[in-house]
Design a protein around this nucleic acid. Sequence first.
DNA 1: ATTATTCTGTTGTCTATACAAGTTGTATAA
DNA 2: TTATACAACTTGTATAGACAACAGAATAAT
Lengths: 236, 236
Amino acid sequence: MKIPLYRQIQANLKEKITSGVYEEGGLLPSENELCVEFNATRMTVRQALNELVREGYITRQHGKGSTVSASRKSLGLLSLKGWTEVVVASDRHGKTLVLEGPVLKKLEDAALKPLIDDEKHEEFIFFKRLRLVEDSPVMFEQTYIPNENLPNFIEEPLLEGSLFRTLLIRYQIDVQSMTQEVRAIAADKETANLLKIKQKSPVLHLLRKYKTSVDDFFLYSSIYCNTEKFAISSFN
Amino acid sequence: MKIPLYRQIQANLKEKITSGVYEEGGLLPSENELCVEFNATRMTVRQALNELVREGYITRQHGKGSTVSASRKSLGLLSLKGWTEVVVASDRHGKTLVLEGPVLKKLEDAALKPLIDDEKHEEFIFFKRLRLVEDSPVMFEQTYIPNENLPNFIEEPLLEGSLFRTLLIRYQIDVQSMTQEVRAIAADKETANLLKIKQKSPVLHLLRKYKTSVDDFFLYSSIYCNTEKFAISSFN
DNA sequence: ATTATTCTGTTGTCTATACAAGTTGTATAA
DNA sequence: TTATACAACTTGTATAGACAACAGAATAAT
Protein backbone atom coordinates (compact mmCIF):
# COMPACT_ATOMS: atom_id res chain seq x y z
CA MET A 1 0.00 0.00 0.00
CA LYS A 2 1.74 3.05 -1.30
CA ILE A 3 0.80 6.35 0.24
CA PRO A 4 1.52 9.43 -1.88
CA LEU A 5 4.26 11.66 -0.58
CA TYR A 6 2.03 14.68 -0.22
CA ARG A 7 -0.38 12.67 1.93
CA GLN A 8 2.50 11.65 4.16
CA ILE A 9 3.60 15.27 4.53
CA GLN A 10 0.02 16.28 5.20
CA ALA A 11 -0.37 13.65 7.92
CA ASN A 12 2.98 14.51 9.45
CA LEU A 13 2.16 18.21 9.70
CA LYS A 14 -1.34 17.50 11.00
CA GLU A 15 0.18 15.37 13.74
CA LYS A 16 2.62 18.12 14.68
CA ILE A 17 -0.18 20.68 14.77
CA THR A 18 -2.58 18.65 16.89
CA SER A 19 0.18 17.56 19.26
CA GLY A 20 1.32 21.12 19.76
CA VAL A 21 4.75 21.02 18.12
CA TYR A 22 3.53 23.92 16.02
CA GLU A 23 1.46 26.05 18.31
CA GLU A 24 -1.77 27.90 17.60
CA GLY A 25 -1.30 31.21 15.88
CA GLY A 26 2.34 30.43 15.14
CA LEU A 27 3.98 30.11 11.78
CA LEU A 28 4.77 26.83 10.08
CA PRO A 29 8.22 26.45 8.53
CA SER A 30 8.38 27.99 5.08
CA GLU A 31 7.69 25.91 2.00
CA ASN A 32 11.36 25.75 1.14
CA GLU A 33 12.28 24.54 4.62
CA LEU A 34 9.59 21.85 4.37
CA CYS A 35 11.01 20.84 0.98
CA VAL A 36 14.34 20.11 2.63
CA GLU A 37 12.78 18.38 5.62
CA PHE A 38 10.68 16.02 3.53
CA ASN A 39 12.99 15.86 0.53
CA ALA A 40 10.26 16.97 -1.85
CA THR A 41 9.66 19.75 -4.33
CA ARG A 42 7.70 22.87 -3.57
CA MET A 43 4.72 21.76 -5.64
CA THR A 44 4.43 18.61 -3.57
CA VAL A 45 4.74 20.49 -0.29
CA ARG A 46 2.19 23.01 -1.51
CA GLN A 47 -0.26 20.25 -2.31
CA ALA A 48 0.01 19.04 1.29
CA LEU A 49 -0.41 22.57 2.64
CA ASN A 50 -3.44 23.25 0.46
CA GLU A 51 -5.09 20.13 1.82
CA LEU A 52 -4.47 21.39 5.34
CA VAL A 53 -6.09 24.70 4.41
CA ARG A 54 -9.11 22.82 3.11
CA GLU A 55 -9.34 20.92 6.36
CA GLY A 56 -9.12 24.11 8.37
CA TYR A 57 -5.83 23.42 10.12
CA ILE A 58 -3.89 26.36 8.70
CA THR A 59 -4.36 29.61 6.85
CA ARG A 60 -1.86 31.04 4.42
CA GLN A 61 -0.84 34.56 3.57
CA HIS A 62 1.00 35.71 0.50
CA GLY A 63 4.46 36.92 1.35
CA LYS A 64 4.23 35.89 4.97
CA GLY A 65 3.67 32.21 5.63
CA SER A 66 1.29 29.56 6.92
CA THR A 67 -0.39 30.20 10.26
CA VAL A 68 -1.74 27.45 12.50
CA SER A 69 -5.47 28.01 13.03
CA ALA A 70 -6.97 28.17 16.47
CA SER A 71 -8.53 24.81 17.21
CA ARG A 72 -12.23 24.72 17.00
CA LYS A 73 -14.39 24.32 20.03
CA SER A 74 -17.49 23.01 18.35
CA LEU A 75 -17.83 19.88 16.29
CA GLY A 76 -16.85 20.07 12.64
CA LEU A 77 -19.62 17.84 11.49
CA LEU A 78 -20.46 19.65 8.32
CA SER A 79 -17.24 18.36 6.87
CA LEU A 80 -16.78 15.00 5.27
CA LYS A 81 -14.98 13.44 8.17
CA GLY A 82 -16.64 10.56 9.92
CA TRP A 83 -17.89 10.90 13.45
CA THR A 84 -14.95 9.00 14.88
CA GLU A 85 -12.35 11.30 13.37
CA VAL A 86 -14.21 14.47 14.34
CA VAL A 87 -14.70 13.55 17.96
CA VAL A 88 -11.12 12.42 18.42
CA ALA A 89 -9.86 15.66 16.85
CA SER A 90 -11.97 17.71 19.22
CA ASP A 91 -10.38 16.15 22.31
CA ARG A 92 -13.77 15.06 23.51
CA HIS A 93 -15.01 11.72 24.67
CA GLY A 94 -17.42 10.28 22.15
CA LYS A 95 -19.49 7.15 22.16
CA THR A 96 -21.83 5.50 19.69
CA LEU A 97 -24.78 3.32 20.58
CA VAL A 98 -26.13 1.11 17.84
CA LEU A 99 -29.88 1.13 18.44
CA GLU A 100 -30.74 -1.04 15.49
CA GLY A 101 -28.93 -2.79 12.70
CA PRO A 102 -27.14 -3.60 10.61
CA VAL A 103 -30.27 -5.09 9.14
CA LEU A 104 -31.85 -5.30 5.70
CA LYS A 105 -34.69 -2.88 5.21
CA LYS A 106 -36.58 -0.96 2.60
CA LEU A 107 -36.23 2.80 2.53
CA GLU A 108 -38.81 4.26 4.88
CA ASP A 109 -37.55 7.77 5.49
CA ALA A 110 -39.56 9.95 3.15
CA ALA A 111 -37.14 12.84 3.55
CA LEU A 112 -34.33 10.81 2.04
CA LYS A 113 -36.24 9.74 -1.04
CA PRO A 114 -35.60 12.92 -3.06
CA LEU A 115 -31.85 12.40 -2.71
CA ILE A 116 -31.99 9.01 -4.35
CA ASP A 117 -32.24 9.31 -8.10
CA ASP A 118 -32.23 5.62 -8.87
CA GLU A 119 -35.34 3.76 -7.89
CA LYS A 120 -33.65 0.47 -8.63
CA HIS A 121 -32.56 -0.12 -5.06
CA GLU A 122 -34.95 -2.42 -3.33
CA GLU A 123 -33.17 -3.20 -0.11
CA PHE A 124 -30.76 -1.25 2.01
CA ILE A 125 -28.50 -2.10 4.89
CA PHE A 126 -29.89 -0.02 7.70
CA PHE A 127 -28.32 1.43 10.83
CA LYS A 128 -29.91 3.41 13.60
CA ARG A 129 -27.27 4.95 15.81
CA LEU A 130 -27.18 7.39 18.69
CA ARG A 131 -24.02 9.39 19.23
CA LEU A 132 -22.97 10.82 22.54
CA VAL A 133 -20.39 13.43 23.38
CA GLU A 134 -19.27 13.36 26.98
CA ASP A 135 -22.30 11.22 27.75
CA SER A 136 -24.85 13.65 26.36
CA PRO A 137 -26.80 12.45 23.33
CA VAL A 138 -25.98 14.78 20.45
CA MET A 139 -26.83 13.03 17.22
CA PHE A 140 -29.41 10.51 16.12
CA GLU A 141 -28.42 9.03 12.80
CA GLN A 142 -30.17 6.70 10.39
CA THR A 143 -28.03 5.33 7.61
CA TYR A 144 -29.07 3.53 4.45
CA ILE A 145 -26.55 1.67 2.32
CA PRO A 146 -27.60 -0.03 -0.93
CA ASN A 147 -27.25 -3.77 -0.48
CA GLU A 148 -24.75 -4.40 -3.26
CA ASN A 149 -21.00 -4.79 -3.41
CA LEU A 150 -20.99 -5.65 0.29
CA PRO A 151 -20.93 -9.42 0.84
CA ASN A 152 -21.16 -10.52 4.46
CA PHE A 153 -21.53 -6.97 5.66
CA ILE A 154 -24.34 -7.69 8.06
CA GLU A 155 -22.66 -10.73 9.53
CA GLU A 156 -19.46 -9.11 10.69
CA PRO A 157 -19.02 -6.25 13.17
CA LEU A 158 -17.66 -2.87 12.18
CA LEU A 159 -13.91 -2.36 12.31
CA GLU A 160 -13.12 -0.22 15.33
CA GLY A 161 -16.77 0.73 15.34
CA SER A 162 -16.26 2.93 12.30
CA LEU A 163 -18.41 2.52 9.20
CA PHE A 164 -16.06 4.48 6.94
CA ARG A 165 -13.03 2.46 8.00
CA THR A 166 -14.89 -0.79 7.50
CA LEU A 167 -15.87 0.16 3.96
CA LEU A 168 -12.32 1.21 3.16
CA ILE A 169 -10.42 -1.71 4.68
CA ARG A 170 -12.79 -4.58 4.02
CA TYR A 171 -14.28 -3.53 0.71
CA GLN A 172 -11.81 -0.95 -0.65
CA ILE A 173 -14.63 1.56 -0.89
CA ASP A 174 -13.45 5.08 -0.20
CA VAL A 175 -15.93 7.77 0.78
CA GLN A 176 -14.81 10.70 -1.31
CA SER A 177 -17.27 13.53 -1.00
CA MET A 178 -20.66 14.47 0.28
CA THR A 179 -23.57 16.74 -0.40
CA GLN A 180 -26.04 17.63 2.27
CA GLU A 181 -29.11 19.66 2.97
CA VAL A 182 -29.52 21.37 6.30
CA ARG A 183 -32.79 22.31 7.93
CA ALA A 184 -34.13 23.31 11.30
CA ILE A 185 -37.17 21.30 12.33
CA ALA A 186 -39.17 20.45 15.41
CA ALA A 187 -38.16 17.18 17.04
CA ASP A 188 -40.62 14.33 16.77
CA LYS A 189 -41.33 12.04 19.68
CA GLU A 190 -38.69 9.42 19.00
CA THR A 191 -35.97 11.96 18.31
CA ALA A 192 -36.84 14.00 21.36
CA ASN A 193 -36.74 10.96 23.59
CA LEU A 194 -33.41 9.79 22.26
CA LEU A 195 -31.77 13.20 22.46
CA LYS A 196 -33.34 13.83 25.86
CA ILE A 197 -35.01 17.06 24.88
CA LYS A 198 -38.62 18.20 24.86
CA GLN A 199 -40.79 17.21 21.99
CA LYS A 200 -40.98 19.93 19.32
CA SER A 201 -37.67 21.40 20.41
CA PRO A 202 -35.71 22.76 17.46
CA VAL A 203 -33.17 20.29 16.11
CA LEU A 204 -30.83 20.38 13.17
CA HIS A 205 -31.74 17.98 10.40
CA LEU A 206 -29.01 16.92 7.98
CA LEU A 207 -29.78 14.92 4.86
CA ARG A 208 -26.61 13.49 3.44
CA LYS A 209 -25.56 11.72 0.30
CA TYR A 210 -22.04 10.34 0.34
CA LYS A 211 -20.21 9.69 -2.89
CA THR A 212 -17.77 6.79 -2.95
CA SER A 213 -14.98 5.51 -5.14
CA VAL A 214 -17.44 3.00 -6.61
CA ASP A 215 -19.46 4.50 -9.42
CA ASP A 216 -23.14 4.96 -8.64
CA PHE A 217 -22.68 3.60 -5.14
CA PHE A 218 -23.78 6.14 -2.56
CA LEU A 219 -24.51 6.12 1.15
CA TYR A 220 -27.44 8.01 2.62
CA SER A 221 -27.90 9.41 6.09
CA SER A 222 -30.58 11.31 7.90
CA ILE A 223 -29.21 12.96 11.03
CA TYR A 224 -30.90 14.83 13.84
CA CYS A 225 -28.66 17.02 16.00
CA ASN A 226 -29.24 18.55 19.37
CA THR A 227 -27.31 21.82 19.16
CA GLU A 228 -28.00 23.08 22.66
CA LYS A 229 -24.63 22.12 24.05
CA PHE A 230 -22.56 21.63 20.94
CA ALA A 231 -22.85 23.73 17.84
CA ILE A 232 -21.91 22.33 14.48
CA SER A 233 -19.08 24.16 12.80
CA SER A 234 -17.70 24.38 9.31
CA PHE A 235 -15.00 26.06 7.34
CA ASN A 236 -14.41 27.44 3.95
CA MET B 1 -5.71 44.16 -12.62
CA LYS B 2 -4.25 40.90 -13.77
CA ILE B 3 -6.30 37.78 -13.34
CA PRO B 4 -4.34 34.52 -13.01
CA LEU B 5 -4.68 32.16 -15.94
CA TYR B 6 -6.14 29.35 -13.86
CA ARG B 7 -8.88 31.71 -12.60
CA GLN B 8 -9.72 32.60 -16.18
CA ILE B 9 -9.94 28.94 -17.14
CA GLN B 10 -12.04 28.26 -14.05
CA ALA B 11 -14.46 31.09 -14.90
CA ASN B 12 -14.64 30.03 -18.53
CA LEU B 13 -15.51 26.43 -17.66
CA LYS B 14 -18.00 27.51 -15.00
CA GLU B 15 -19.73 29.66 -17.57
CA LYS B 16 -19.88 26.77 -20.02
CA ILE B 17 -21.28 24.48 -17.35
CA THR B 18 -23.98 26.81 -16.08
CA SER B 19 -24.99 27.80 -19.60
CA GLY B 20 -25.31 24.18 -20.64
CA VAL B 21 -22.49 23.90 -23.17
CA TYR B 22 -21.25 21.01 -21.06
CA GLU B 23 -24.33 19.20 -19.91
CA GLU B 24 -25.08 17.62 -16.56
CA GLY B 25 -23.62 14.17 -16.12
CA GLY B 26 -21.49 14.58 -19.21
CA LEU B 27 -17.73 14.56 -19.44
CA LEU B 28 -15.58 17.65 -19.70
CA PRO B 29 -12.81 17.66 -22.30
CA SER B 30 -9.71 15.90 -21.00
CA GLU B 31 -6.97 17.85 -19.30
CA ASN B 32 -4.77 17.65 -22.36
CA GLU B 33 -7.50 18.98 -24.61
CA LEU B 34 -8.07 21.87 -22.21
CA CYS B 35 -4.33 22.55 -22.26
CA VAL B 36 -4.49 23.09 -25.99
CA GLU B 37 -7.69 25.13 -25.83
CA PHE B 38 -6.36 27.53 -23.20
CA ASN B 39 -2.70 27.33 -24.17
CA ALA B 40 -1.64 26.32 -20.68
CA THR B 41 0.15 23.44 -19.02
CA ARG B 42 -1.59 20.57 -17.33
CA MET B 43 -0.72 21.81 -13.86
CA THR B 44 -2.49 25.09 -14.56
CA VAL B 45 -5.54 23.37 -16.01
CA ARG B 46 -5.60 21.01 -13.05
CA GLN B 47 -5.59 23.92 -10.64
CA ALA B 48 -8.67 25.30 -12.37
CA LEU B 49 -10.38 21.90 -12.31
CA ASN B 50 -9.59 21.37 -8.64
CA GLU B 51 -11.22 24.70 -7.82
CA LEU B 52 -14.33 23.58 -9.70
CA VAL B 53 -14.38 20.38 -7.65
CA ARG B 54 -14.15 22.42 -4.48
CA GLU B 55 -17.08 24.53 -5.65
CA GLY B 56 -19.13 21.47 -6.45
CA TYR B 57 -19.41 21.95 -10.19
CA ILE B 58 -17.60 18.79 -11.24
CA THR B 59 -16.33 15.51 -9.90
CA ARG B 60 -13.28 13.70 -11.18
CA GLN B 61 -12.39 10.08 -11.55
CA HIS B 62 -8.99 8.59 -12.01
CA GLY B 63 -8.60 7.09 -15.45
CA LYS B 64 -11.93 8.36 -16.65
CA GLY B 65 -12.40 12.10 -16.63
CA SER B 66 -14.24 15.05 -15.13
CA THR B 67 -18.02 14.77 -14.83
CA VAL B 68 -20.35 17.74 -14.63
CA SER B 69 -22.33 17.55 -11.39
CA ALA B 70 -26.08 17.75 -11.30
CA SER B 71 -27.01 21.28 -10.36
CA ARG B 72 -28.24 21.72 -6.86
CA LYS B 73 -31.80 22.59 -6.07
CA SER B 74 -31.34 24.13 -2.65
CA LEU B 75 -29.30 27.18 -1.76
CA GLY B 76 -25.57 26.67 -1.20
CA LEU B 77 -25.39 29.08 1.66
CA LEU B 78 -22.97 27.17 3.79
CA SER B 79 -20.25 28.07 1.36
CA LEU B 80 -18.28 31.24 1.33
CA LYS B 81 -20.12 32.81 -1.54
CA GLY B 82 -22.08 35.94 -0.89
CA TRP B 83 -25.83 35.95 -1.10
CA THR B 84 -25.84 37.63 -4.47
CA GLU B 85 -23.67 35.02 -6.12
CA VAL B 86 -25.57 32.11 -4.60
CA VAL B 87 -29.00 33.27 -5.64
CA VAL B 88 -27.92 34.08 -9.16
CA ALA B 89 -26.31 30.65 -9.48
CA SER B 90 -29.51 28.97 -8.35
CA ASP B 91 -31.55 30.58 -11.11
CA ARG B 92 -33.88 32.07 -8.56
CA HIS B 93 -35.09 35.56 -8.09
CA GLY B 94 -33.55 37.06 -4.97
CA LYS B 95 -34.08 40.39 -3.27
CA THR B 96 -32.57 42.06 -0.25
CA LEU B 97 -34.34 44.57 1.97
CA VAL B 98 -32.12 46.73 4.15
CA LEU B 99 -34.12 47.10 7.34
CA GLU B 100 -31.54 49.16 9.15
CA GLY B 101 -28.13 50.58 8.46
CA PRO B 102 -25.44 51.04 7.57
CA VAL B 103 -25.13 52.74 10.93
CA LEU B 104 -22.56 52.87 13.71
CA LYS B 105 -23.43 50.72 16.65
CA LYS B 106 -21.93 48.83 19.53
CA LEU B 107 -22.10 45.07 19.47
CA GLU B 108 -25.38 44.01 21.01
CA ASP B 109 -25.78 40.43 19.87
CA ALA B 110 -24.62 38.32 22.77
CA ALA B 111 -24.35 35.24 20.57
CA LEU B 112 -21.66 36.87 18.43
CA LYS B 113 -19.46 37.95 21.31
CA PRO B 114 -17.66 34.60 21.72
CA LEU B 115 -16.51 34.78 18.11
CA ILE B 116 -14.73 38.06 18.66
CA ASP B 117 -11.41 37.56 20.37
CA ASP B 118 -10.35 41.19 20.40
CA GLU B 119 -12.25 43.38 22.77
CA LYS B 120 -10.63 46.42 21.29
CA HIS B 121 -13.45 47.14 18.88
CA GLU B 122 -15.73 49.77 20.26
CA GLU B 123 -17.93 50.56 17.32
CA PHE B 124 -19.15 48.53 14.40
CA ILE B 125 -20.83 49.32 11.14
CA PHE B 126 -24.14 47.57 11.45
CA PHE B 127 -26.56 46.18 8.90
CA LYS B 128 -29.90 44.54 9.40
CA ARG B 129 -31.07 42.87 6.22
CA LEU B 130 -33.90 40.65 5.15
CA ARG B 131 -33.38 38.39 2.17
CA LEU B 132 -36.13 37.07 -0.01
CA VAL B 133 -36.17 34.29 -2.55
CA GLU B 134 -39.04 34.49 -4.98
CA ASP B 135 -40.70 36.96 -2.64
CA SER B 136 -40.63 34.69 0.40
CA PRO B 137 -38.48 35.89 3.30
CA VAL B 138 -35.75 33.30 3.82
CA MET B 139 -32.94 34.90 5.79
CA PHE B 140 -32.69 37.59 8.41
CA GLU B 141 -29.12 38.74 8.70
CA GLN B 142 -27.37 41.09 11.12
CA THR B 143 -23.86 42.07 10.13
CA TYR B 144 -21.20 43.77 12.21
CA ILE B 145 -18.09 45.24 10.60
CA PRO B 146 -15.36 46.83 12.74
CA ASN B 147 -15.28 50.55 11.99
CA GLU B 148 -11.71 50.75 10.73
CA ASN B 149 -10.10 50.76 7.29
CA LEU B 150 -13.41 51.83 5.80
CA PRO B 151 -13.54 55.64 5.29
CA ASN B 152 -16.86 56.97 4.05
CA PHE B 153 -18.43 53.54 4.13
CA ILE B 154 -21.63 54.68 5.73
CA GLU B 155 -22.05 57.65 3.44
CA GLU B 156 -22.04 55.80 0.14
CA PRO B 157 -24.41 53.08 -1.06
CA LEU B 158 -23.30 49.52 -1.71
CA LEU B 159 -22.03 48.68 -5.18
CA GLU B 160 -24.71 46.66 -6.93
CA GLY B 161 -26.21 46.08 -3.50
CA SER B 162 -23.43 43.64 -2.65
CA LEU B 163 -21.37 44.03 0.50
CA PHE B 164 -18.58 41.72 -0.68
CA ARG B 165 -18.21 43.50 -4.00
CA THR B 166 -18.13 46.88 -2.29
CA LEU B 167 -15.36 45.79 0.04
CA LEU B 168 -13.36 44.38 -2.85
CA ILE B 169 -13.76 47.19 -5.36
CA ARG B 170 -13.78 50.22 -3.13
CA TYR B 171 -11.40 49.10 -0.39
CA GLN B 172 -9.46 46.23 -1.97
CA ILE B 173 -10.56 44.00 0.89
CA ASP B 174 -11.07 40.43 -0.24
CA VAL B 175 -13.18 38.05 1.82
CA GLN B 176 -11.11 34.90 1.78
CA SER B 177 -12.58 32.35 4.12
CA MET B 178 -15.15 31.82 6.80
CA THR B 179 -15.85 29.80 9.89
CA GLN B 180 -19.35 29.32 11.17
CA GLU B 181 -21.36 27.65 13.85
CA VAL B 182 -24.74 26.19 13.03
CA ARG B 183 -27.57 25.68 15.45
CA ALA B 184 -31.29 25.03 15.42
CA ILE B 185 -33.20 27.39 17.70
CA ALA B 186 -36.74 28.62 18.27
CA ALA B 187 -37.50 31.88 16.49
CA ASP B 188 -37.94 34.92 18.69
CA LYS B 189 -40.67 37.44 18.05
CA GLU B 190 -38.77 39.75 15.71
CA THR B 191 -37.33 36.91 13.65
CA ALA B 192 -40.68 35.16 13.38
CA ASN B 193 -42.40 38.34 12.22
CA LEU B 194 -39.79 39.09 9.61
CA LEU B 195 -39.66 35.54 8.25
CA LYS B 196 -43.45 35.30 8.41
CA ILE B 197 -43.50 32.19 10.53
CA LYS B 198 -44.96 31.39 13.90
CA GLN B 199 -43.07 32.41 16.99
CA LYS B 200 -40.94 29.57 18.37
CA SER B 201 -40.83 27.84 15.00
CA PRO B 202 -37.49 26.12 14.44
CA VAL B 203 -35.04 28.23 12.48
CA LEU B 204 -31.46 27.73 11.48
CA HIS B 205 -29.04 30.02 13.25
CA LEU B 206 -25.66 30.67 11.62
CA LEU B 207 -22.90 32.54 13.43
CA ARG B 208 -20.24 33.56 10.98
CA LYS B 209 -16.80 35.03 11.13
CA TYR B 210 -15.36 36.06 7.78
CA LYS B 211 -11.62 36.33 7.31
CA THR B 212 -10.36 38.97 4.90
CA SER B 213 -7.15 39.85 3.11
CA VAL B 214 -6.51 42.48 5.79
CA ASP B 215 -4.83 41.02 8.84
CA ASP B 216 -7.00 40.98 11.96
CA PHE B 217 -9.92 42.47 10.07
CA PHE B 218 -12.96 40.22 10.25
CA LEU B 219 -16.66 40.55 9.47
CA TYR B 220 -19.30 39.05 11.71
CA SER B 221 -22.80 37.92 10.87
CA SER B 222 -25.68 36.41 12.74
CA ILE B 223 -28.16 34.84 10.37
CA TYR B 224 -31.57 33.29 10.92
CA CYS B 225 -32.91 31.06 8.16
CA ASN B 226 -36.37 29.80 7.47
CA THR B 227 -35.75 26.35 5.99
CA GLU B 228 -39.34 25.39 5.32
CA LYS B 229 -39.22 26.13 1.62
CA PHE B 230 -35.51 26.20 0.91
CA ALA B 231 -32.98 23.95 2.55
CA ILE B 232 -29.41 25.03 2.89
CA SER B 233 -26.95 22.82 1.09
CA SER B 234 -23.23 22.27 1.15
CA PHE B 235 -20.56 20.19 -0.42
CA ASN B 236 -17.36 18.55 0.54
C1' DA C 1 12.84 62.21 12.78
C1' DT C 2 10.40 60.99 8.86
C1' DT C 3 9.86 59.25 4.47
C1' DA C 4 11.45 56.52 0.38
C1' DT C 5 14.01 52.91 -1.34
C1' DT C 6 16.19 48.59 -1.42
C1' DC C 7 16.79 44.01 0.10
C1' DT C 8 15.43 39.48 1.61
C1' DG C 9 12.35 35.92 2.39
C1' DT C 10 7.87 34.44 1.73
C1' DT C 11 3.81 32.57 -1.05
C1' DG C 12 1.44 32.73 -5.84
C1' DT C 13 1.53 31.46 -10.59
C1' DC C 14 3.25 28.91 -14.49
C1' DT C 15 6.10 26.07 -17.67
C1' DA C 16 7.87 21.57 -19.20
C1' DT C 17 8.44 16.97 -18.43
C1' DA C 18 8.11 12.20 -16.69
C1' DC C 19 6.22 8.16 -14.96
C1' DA C 20 2.44 5.70 -12.20
C1' DA C 21 -2.03 4.03 -12.13
C1' DG C 22 -7.00 3.53 -13.24
C1' DT C 23 -10.52 2.76 -17.24
C1' DT C 24 -12.06 1.21 -21.46
C1' DG C 25 -12.17 -0.83 -25.79
C1' DT C 26 -9.95 -3.98 -29.06
C1' DA C 27 -7.38 -7.60 -30.75
C1' DT C 28 -5.71 -12.01 -29.82
C1' DA C 29 -5.62 -16.65 -27.91
C1' DA C 30 -7.84 -20.43 -25.65
C1' DT D 1 -17.86 -17.73 -26.82
C1' DT D 2 -14.98 -16.49 -23.27
C1' DA D 3 -10.81 -15.09 -21.25
C1' DT D 4 -6.56 -12.78 -21.58
C1' DA D 5 -3.46 -9.46 -23.02
C1' DC D 6 -2.58 -5.28 -24.92
C1' DA D 7 -2.99 -0.49 -26.42
C1' DA D 8 -4.72 3.99 -25.92
C1' DC D 9 -6.80 6.86 -23.34
C1' DT D 10 -7.62 9.15 -18.83
C1' DT D 11 -6.23 11.38 -14.15
C1' DG D 12 -2.72 11.15 -10.14
C1' DT D 13 1.80 12.09 -8.39
C1' DA D 14 6.24 14.18 -8.57
C1' DT D 15 10.45 16.66 -10.17
C1' DA D 16 13.09 21.04 -11.40
C1' DG D 17 13.08 25.45 -12.29
C1' DA D 18 11.54 30.35 -13.26
C1' DC D 19 9.53 34.74 -12.38
C1' DA D 20 5.82 37.64 -10.10
C1' DA D 21 3.69 39.62 -6.08
C1' DC D 22 3.56 40.58 -1.38
C1' DA D 23 5.32 41.57 3.58
C1' DG D 24 8.52 43.17 6.60
C1' DA D 25 12.92 44.75 7.88
C1' DA D 26 16.98 47.23 6.93
C1' DT D 27 18.94 51.03 4.67
C1' DA D 28 19.34 55.45 2.33
C1' DA D 29 17.55 59.96 1.25
C1' DT D 30 15.14 63.94 2.60
